[in-house]
Design a protein around this nucleic acid. Structure first.
Lengths: 337, 337
DNA sequence: TCGCATGATGTAAACGTTTACATCATCCTA
DNA sequence: TAGGATGATGTAAACGTTTACATCATGCGA
């Protein structure tokens, strides 16, 4: 049988109330008493029972992270960011990596009810309405990279639009005029925003009209397919901007197979800055997203909500990206934020 | 105020005991009563309070996963494997990605006390003694890729030795005689086992004596450095077996920079089968480890311990690896298990 | 010296379950 | 038909905390 607060009280010759007060740092305890209690508690290796505490405080000091099927690096970095921030504040993290469909997501959310003080939810393609049904009004939620809507939930986004805008501007500044894009899966928010950034930058240069766009789905294979089509084009683009690195890598390989040189014949850029980006040849120019920061920021936003519900406006925050210039878009030593 | 078991009892016209029995599937409840209770419970959207339940049952239906700093793919796959298995059995997963030092690991373990029914702990380099101090005797623990010892904990291992043995044998079967290895960090169990497998295979062919060994630390940079030294060697090896894929990639790049062709001049193999392995050129021959399976198996082992403590012998289980033959070791169409 | 404010400490209720035990109705057997 | 076995249901204790409230001692001003 584990040692309880009663054992500590008895051993210290005080009441359980005093033990509770001393251990929770309340001020209405004599220093002498507190000291004695603390000493006894450590000697007895006392550990408060979280269940009993939660039962009465209605707090678990645990948050849930509900994530879709993410590629390894994104997933691990995100969890890492969340976990580090959570630990710093004495919170625990319950994970659920839901595999795609929204039924499973809402099942996971339901299962977490009562075990968590709040939820971090990432669901890049589903529309948020199902969330409103799955979630009890009382539970604080922060959305990650979720579609913008007039939701009652605060949300955090990577600046997909800004990153794509900056990258396309960069390519334009290098003298490229005909800049193609390989897009991501239909209905994916990140993909849409990246496409929008690309288009906006082209529009600034009055080049948006017949800009070549190729469908993709974020997979290396779809990038490869797009690369093949690009290689076969009568009028090849000066540059190709893939909506993520995996497609850029696929495209790079396809171009190589067709004898199209990068960056000699065509410049190439990606998005995400996955580790692979540094290992392909030429190294890939890309947009770096600070994923761990996204996780950390989301957690902090959630904690703010927990500690002072409703005090901060429910709005979307945007985390900046930075472009990372490497060899695949030609010799460009500078690195722009 | 949330709806409690009392509300359900009142609405169904029975006692709380009957509600509890009905909801927990006990057999001593009339079908009629059970049905009525269930109906009322769903109508009222009743959700049992986990804290109250845990308080009395001493169970949380949650397990903790304490993981070191792993590369993205390994981390996410492992969590995924654990999570899927856990969800199937109605368990939750508390994660903690400790960043290296064992102080933090044991802090994480301590923090999880009382919140979890059992622990999955991965700590490839620390010696397991500190675990014995950090862990209460009562808490079931399964170790992942931990050093073998006369521990009281069951453990699961990837078959690092077997994988390296199989890969080295494969290289030998392709006619390579002088097979170098780039090793992993000192004191790392996986690295040691892989080296041992390589040595054992060489010993079988009486080639172990002056086999070239290069130090590495699992980083791409250390592989690159080793590659440079290999390229500069007067008597180059026929093949290089890197203890992980990242070092193999680094080595590949270094060799390419020095004009050493792979697989023409030297064959190359790695370990892990990370996604990058397929995207380098030539594609990398490597040892595939089924990480999600490792997570799943570890969870199942832990659950077995939870449900029938001490019934299964405390011993180490080993999960097989398979070698994946690609272009980097020359044209070898077959794929061996 | 009395009464009162102040501050430390104790008492006990409450949180929402599960479950041992008591109770009660029903059915079967003698 | 009495009485015992069986099985459904109810009662209440228990789990280990936190916290509102009561109590008590102390010090201070009048």
């Amino acid at each position: 049988m584990a040692v309880t607060i009663k054992d500590v009280a008895r051993a210290a010759g005080v009441s359980v109330a005093s033990v509770s007060r001393a251990l929770n740092g309340r001020d209405n305890v004599t220093d002498a008493t507190r000291h004695r209690i603390l000493e006894v508690a450590t000697r007895l290796r006392y550990r408060p029972n979280d269940a009993a505490r939660s039962l009465i405080t209605k707090r678990t000091r645990t948050i849930g992270a509900v994530l879709p099927d993410l590629h390894g690096e994104f997933f691990s970095e995100l969890i890492r960011g969340i976990d580090v921030a959570a630990r710093a504040r004495g919170f625990h993290v319950l994970v659920s990596s839901s595999h795609g469909d929204s039924d499973e997501t809402s099942a996971a959310i339901r299962a977490m009810q009562g075990r968590v003080d709040g939820l971090l939810v990432m669901s890049p393609h589903v529309d948020a309405t199902f969330l409103h049904e799955s979630l009890p009004d009382a539970l604080p939620v922060v959305l990650l990279n979720a579609p913008p809507d007039r939701s009652r939930f605060p949300a955090l986004h990577l600046d997909n639009h800004g990153g794509a805008l900056a990258m396309t501007r960069h390519l334009l500044s290098r003298g490229h005029r005909r800049i193609a894009m390989i897009g991501g899966p239909a209905g994916n928010l990140d993909a849409d925003e990246r496409r929008r950034g690309w288009l906006d930058a082209l529009a600034e240069a009055s080049l948006a009209d017949d800009a070549p766009f190729f469908d993709g789905d974020f997979s290396e294979a779809s990038g490869h397919a797009a690369g093949q089509r690009i290689a076969a084009l009568a009028q090849r683009p000066d540059a190709v901007f893939a909506a993520n690195d995996m497609m850029a890598v696929g495209c790079l390989i396809a171009l190589g197979e067709r004898g199209v040189r990068v960056p000699g014949d065509v410049a190439l850029a990606g998005f995400d800055d996955v580790p692979i980006a540094r290992y392909v040849s030429p190294q890939l120019t890309t947009v770096r997203v600070r994923i761990a920061d996204l996780g950390r920021a989301a957690f902090e936003r959630l904690v703010a909500e927990l500690e002072a519900p409703g005090t901060r406006p429910v709005r979307a925050e945007v985390l900046p990206c930075e472009i990372v210039v490497r060899a695949s878009c030609g010799r460009c030593p500078e690195r722009t934020a």
